[in-house]
Design a protein around this nucleic acid. Structure first.
Lengths: 236, 236
DNA sequence: AAAATACATTTTGTGTACAATTAATATTTG
DNA sequence: CAAATATTAATTGTACACAAAATGTATTTT
């Protein structure tokens, strides 16, 4: 029953990945080699290999002689995010609609069921991870080696952004979240129908929702605004 | 004067990178850990870390218990390439035109001078590397963390594709190559003028040239066709 | 007491030994 | 002789020990 080193290594990889996505590890925080090698019963050699891989995939940053930290989310990259995401995700869904195999559609539906379950009972963390998984499957469907690297980097910050701007007992968020679920359903339908035009349009919708959702918090306007900070109204 | 391990490590990284780009290391070929650790006077520990990083960046593929090989260039990925490249590169040049700093423009011009020099006297390898460098600088200018991962993966195969389809004593290629140089000049001008529309259009032109150039060899029609393989003519 | 220096501690990087896995070769068996 | 199995060699993965570098603390100096 004792786990072999291979599974401990993938466990480490998955754990760091999850912790970054859910912000359990905050952007910019240090990764302690000795602490992690204790936790996962691995020596530092395989541990550091995993660090390098995670660095290549954009989860962490490696600094010469100064260890690894969780990759930053600067303010400029939030702008870049909403500039880049619609383009990449549009291309991904277009290709997904064209290329999706039946077994992948099954997988996507399963991911969506998990997402719905996380909406009902799960934590914000579960929801972010389930949503991440859903999009990841669409990436697999697109099956384009040149598109996926950027797409996966986008998904990292998508998860972290939604964790950042999520506030549990907020009605607006609850509505947005169920909208997202509806959009997932629509995406599945478009992919299943092979309708790449519709899929591309849904990608745009999905990011518009995401952006609006965040703008509600970045520039709040309404009853729960702290004081006289009624700077900007949501245009339209 | 003896090199420290840090520089040997970056030397290893640069060398593998170059060899992959120039096809000195063919796609699919194995990387011998012991041979490379001899060549660069590094133990296998830092060597394998470099492998992981290169894997994350798309230069090599890592297989469990079966070492590293140079990443493949399948036939389907050639299709994917010409599907994805115009979109990504268009976005990159658009952003580059908007964001380029003066010092970066100096760098880009220097890269272009190197490219021209490689056209006159250099080998196909030098030309591919110089061209790669030129585009890499445009990527730096774009300065978008979400776009660059895909862009850099495209550049890898761009270099390898041009190495694949280059034939030294071929007039058509010579013409295309000087066209490419002219396009570089036009790209520099557009970026310097901050003209993002023009830059985006030039990106399209650049890939169209690239595609045409390759189609000449993939579906050749003319005197140097081996035998009765006159399958498809270049449709205008 | 502040700045500068020296020292100790912690953290990061590399080399080497050994374990585990895979590939290659020889041997057996039908 | 071909297929299957056993044996050997080569390669890959991990652990540990030590070297190098960075960080933190104490000491000296002014």
């Amino acid at each position: 029953m004792k786990e072999d080193s291979k599974s401990r290594k993938t466990a480490l990889y998955d754990a760091i990945r999850q912790r970054v996505l859910t912000m359990a590890l905050r952007p910019g925080s240090d990764l302690d080699e000795t602490a992690l090698s204790d936790e996962f019963a691995l020596s530092r050699t395989p541990l550091r290999e995993v660090f390098r891989q995670l660095a290549g995939e954009g989860y962490v940053d490696l600094r010469e002689n100064r260890g690894a930290r969780v990759s930053e989310m600067s303010h400029t990259s939030l702008r870049d995010f909403f500039l880049t995401a619609p383009m990449i995700y549009g291309a991904v869904l277009r290709l997904a609609a064209k290329n999706a195999r039946p077994d992948q559609i099954v997988k996507l539906k399963a991911a969506q069921e998990d997402f719905k379950a996380s909406l009902r009972s799960g934590s914000a963390e579960d929801r972010a991870l389930a949503n991440n998984r859903f999009h990841e499957v669409t990436g697999e469907m697109a099956d384009n080696v040149y598109l996926l690297p950027s797409f996966q980097r986008l998904l990292i910050d998508h998860a972290r952004i939604s964790m950042t701007f999520y506030r549990p007992r907020d009605d607006r968020m609850a509505r947005n979240v169920s909208d997202a679920s509806d959009q997932h359903d629509a995406i599945i339908a478009a992919i299943e129908a092979g309708d790449d035009i519709a899929a591309a349009r849904l990608a745009d919708d999905h990011w518009n929702l995401s952006r609006d959702q965040i703008e509600l918090f970045v520039m709040p306007a309404g009853l729960d605004v702290p004081l006289g900070t009624v700077s900007r109204q949501n245009s339209a």
